[in-house]
Nucleic acid binder design. Structure first.
Lengths: 162, 162
DNA sequence: GGCTATTGCGCAATAT
DNA sequence: TATATTGCGCAATAGC
């Protein structure tokens, strides 16, 4: 598809958050094995593995798993952008849908009104026909009585263009 | 492009997450400029305050801020539940709105069809009237020509009950 | 294989 | 004070 709205308006990228998560959700593999302890986030870029702490499990499939890695941060940042974008779209869509409901409701009312009008017109004309038929039956000589369309100019011929 | 598959239902609260956040979102002040350091969250449940570490800022307004506190965990858990509930509702609402759109669209088509039908009926009747009027004008003696409703039994009087 | 997009989730701030 | 809503980041994964 298209995706040219790579925002470069940037905006708020000034968050100082740091997160460490042990078992994110469902992942079956535990990065640190049974020991539920995780290494401290090491937010300070002192030096990777500089502490006397036991080295993590050192089971990274790549450097991409390194929280301190530049690549990791870049991937995270890109994903965060994508997430924001996706959520924005989602919200926009919901909003549009709601608006669509409103429009359709209006349209519906309009149509119903029109139907009412047409029905009324039709009813009037049919009544005229019926009366005419009765007059014919009662007075085949076409003398002309009330409701006789042969002697009545119809004033209900409003065009349907409302 | 459908995707109805919810992943495993499980996903119970067996997460060992720990989060440290400096300025969650909006705070305008940068955490520490280049050196984004913040105190470690004490993820290890060794013992509250047992380590020789310098006590954090000791600015907790209550024990509720303690990540190790039972009260904290309970609050978090309740909130997580509330969040799930809220999101479920939100999704349900969006779904309902979408369905409403579909229903309204159907209704609209139905109404438009009805309008078409009524309009056609009306048009036929009006034509009959017009022709009748012309006949009257051309032949005041009411001789009866083609289209003269005075001599024509209308076969188009279909009732509007469609 | 790598990329973005989508989704579930937990946290924290905020609203009610 | 409790719950509800919201923005956000993370990680898994779907999709291309």
């Amino acid at each position: 598809m298209n995706k040219q709205l790579q925002q470069k308006i940037s905006s708020t990228d000034q968050n100082g958050v740091s997160v460490i998560q042990n078992q994110p959700h469902n992942s079956a593999f535990n990065p640190a094995g049974a020991a539920g302890l995780q290494q401290v986030p090491q937010l300070v870029p002192v030096s990777p593995g500089g502490g006397g702490k036991a080295t993590p499990p050192s089971k990274m499939k790549k450097s991409s798993m390194d929280k301190d890695s530049d690549e990791y941060r870049q991937r995270r940042e890109r994903n965060n952008l994508a997430v924001k974008k996706s959520r924005m779209r989602s919200k926009q869509k919901a909003q549009d849908t709601q608006q669509r409901v409103n429009e359709l409701k209006e349209e519906n009312e309009r149509l119903e009104a029109k139907i009412k009008l047409l029905s009324k017109e039709l009813s009037v004309l049919k009544d005229l026909f019926l009366e005419h038929a009765h007059n014919l039956a009662d007075n085949p000589a076409s003398g002309g009585g009330p409701g006789d369309i042969c002697n009545n100019n119809n004033n209900n011929s409003s065009n349907g263009s409302q």
